[in-house]
């Protein structure tokens, strides 16, 4: 089989992903089950990223807070009236 034919076969296979369900449990018997798969996939993908983003934001706020504290301490004390 030529390379072009292989490429066309591969491209056609991409159009019918349902025929390539390799995972024995990745099929849905009910609509609820299908949505459970989709929902949990999104949940498990987004959760670690969300946690990392949350920790990063928290640490950044802590660093900024400490920098503000240091900056305030560096300011010259105003002369007494």
């Amino acid at each position: 089989m030529s390379r072009a034919a292989l490429a066309i076969a591969f491209a056609l296979a991409l159009l019918v992903p349902g025929a390539a369900e390799a995972c024995s449990v990745c099929f849905s018997t009910t609509e609820e089950n299908r949505w459970a798969f989709i929902g949990t996939t999104v949940f498990m993908s987004v959760l670690p990223l969300g946690i990392l983003f949350g920790i990063g934001t928290w640490l950044r706020s802590k660093v900024l807070e400490m920098e503000r504290h240091h900056e305030a301490a560096r300011l010259p004390t105003p002369p007494a009236p």
Partner: peptide
Amino acid sequence: CVVEAMLFAGLVSAHTIVRSN
């Protein structure tokens, strides 16, 4: 706690799929 959160997330996901079936 991050590690444990993922443990619970895995359990919740498995439970959700089994329950939906």
